[in-house]
Write a protein that binds this DNA or RNA. Structure first.
Lengths: 225, 225
DNA sequence: CTTATTTTTTATAAAATCTTTATAGAATCT
DNA sequence: AGATTCTATAAAGATTTTATAAAAAATAAG
């Protein structure tokens, strides 16, 4: 397989250097931009396999860059931010960020998230069957199996799980989930979500009190892995 | 049912070993070949239920092997490749590959795809007789037997059951069923469906109150198994 | 033309699912 | 540490969906 190409949009030289060294030693091809304008231009000229985007850029906020990118760029965008600000995170994810990390971050974690994001973007398109350990979700047949046995799910439970499966290991915000599963206008009914995540966990988790698949991201949403 | 037999054509010993262990522990019988020539010979002498074919073989490209196989071998062929190359994928699928996976692959996913492929090849279009335990549905002769006795069905009942049989273990939505059996414009007549599913159950189920074949998927549709 | 069969409608009881409320516990913030 | 917000869970109530019988209408058969 060819080296995956990663574009880093960040104005801090230390971060740039750190990322470059780590990514290159992990066999990624690295391309760098220091401003929003430069980054967008580079992404447009030669679309990379993944973009790492800093929120605090000199010329334009990362949010704006993201929303601009998302008009035509479908591959993963991972957000970096010095702020551990919930509103910021939620807004970024809602705009279409694949993942987010707060500085300072652990390099190992970043690499893992990059791997996960790239893997997903490669298999997502044509994979009709999503598997996660003992779980198997067939998005065409609309059937969920656990240890090869069919799990009986209600329509809403299935829709919810399918949404998670399509966005494996990506944090989905409450708002986004509610909009996708219940429809526009239900975005404030967070309690629905809690109830249904609860019943899903009872059906798909080994131990629902210590979920391994449906992970709570407090204040933000949920993540499926 | 007998163990399904899988032929692996791959020259990398690690992959061979990995596949062998995983497949055998999932109750498949595994046969192995290390070259294209050997693989074709083995497939011809004793046709397996599925072939896993590596694209990068020492003596001949997997594409050639595939096209040669397809002259007489109709069962699933899953391609493995180190290249995540769209042109390659398209070309393989066009030559008749059932599925395509890039190395490194997740074992769970491969197993799921194998299951899906085998299931499809057993029931899909090419099968004119679908059997489910004591039931036998001959789609060419339009005859349904239960414990070897002919079941008398009306035209609509038969059309409905045939649709289910062609889509075994797949959830079909009300809308879809209505469109297929009654035609475009009947998609809201869900009650028809209930009535006919009811009468079908009386004819094909051991105990119509606890159906084993025609399963209700509340809020969505029905599933035949 | 009459009768039998099949399909469509209507009505209603039962089952399943979804929504809402209440409350206790966990996580996060100040 | 204490206050506040967020999360999990159970359970009651409301709503939707499903199953079934049976009548009415349409179609086919004799």
């Amino acid at each position: 397989m060819n080296k995956a190409e990663i574009l880093i949009i960040d104005d801090e030289p230390q971060i740039q250097k750190l990322l470059q060294i780590n990514l290159e030693s992990n066999d990624y091809k690295v391309v760098q931009a220091r401003t929003a304008k430069e980054g967008i231009l580079m992404a447009a000229n030669h679309p990379p396999d993944l973009i790492i985007l800093d929120i605090g850029l000199p010329d334009k906020s990362g949010h704006e860059v993201l929303s601009e990118l998302r008009h035509w760029y479908a591959k993963p965008v991972i957000i970096l931010s010095v702020l551990d600000n919930e509103k910021d995170i939620v807004s970024a994810l809602d705009t279409g960020a694949t993942d987010y990390l707060t500085k300072p971050f652990r390099t190992g974690e970043l690499l893992a998230r990059i791997r996960a994001a790239i893997r997903r973007s490669q298999t997502a398109v044509n994979a009709s069957v999503v598997t996660a350990n003992e779980l198997e979700i067939d998005l065409v047949a609309r059937i969920v199996k656990r240890n090869n046995e069919i799990v009986k799910l209600t329509a809403t439970e299935y829709n919810l799980l399918a949404l998670f499966a399509k966005n494996e290991s990506k944090v989905l915000t409450h708002q986004y989930i509610l909009k996708e599963v219940w429809g526009y206008g239900y975005q404030t009914e967070t309690q629905y979500l809690r109830v249904f995540v609860g019943s899903l966990r009872k059906k798909i988790e080994e131990n629902p009190n210590n979920p391994q698949h449906l992970i709570t991201e407090s204040g933000v949403g949920y993540r499926f892995q």
